[in-house]
């Protein structure tokens, strides 16, 4: 079966830790949802509690531009 397409991938490379669970974040499956549209991505995720981290650069860059594109649909 073909691998599911991911629009964006960030590997935390062991630099981020979940404060609550005390474990390093790993590259995990996540999904952005906006105005009834979904985008599968791979982001730093806590393997225990599932906290998904959206770094500032991603939020203000790619995420913001996709938001704007969808808002004008």
């Amino acid at each position: 079966m073909a691998a599911e397409k991911n629009y964006y991938t960030i590997d935390p490379e062991g630099k981020l830790t979940c404060l609550k669970c005390g474990v390093p974040l790993v590259k995990g499956k996540a999904k952005f949802m906006y105005l009834d549209n979904g985008f599968p991505v791979e982001l730093p995720v806590c393997p225990v509690c599932g906290f998904v981290y959206v770094p500032e650069e991603l939020a203000l860059g790619k995420v913001a531009s996709v938001e704007r594109a969808l808002e004008d649909k």
Binding site: E4, K31, V52, V54, L60
Partner: peptide
Amino acid sequence: HRAWSHRMNVVKREG
């Protein structure tokens, strides 16, 4: 130190 926001909602995906 810093603050940012986004409108998209992000959720963990199973599988």
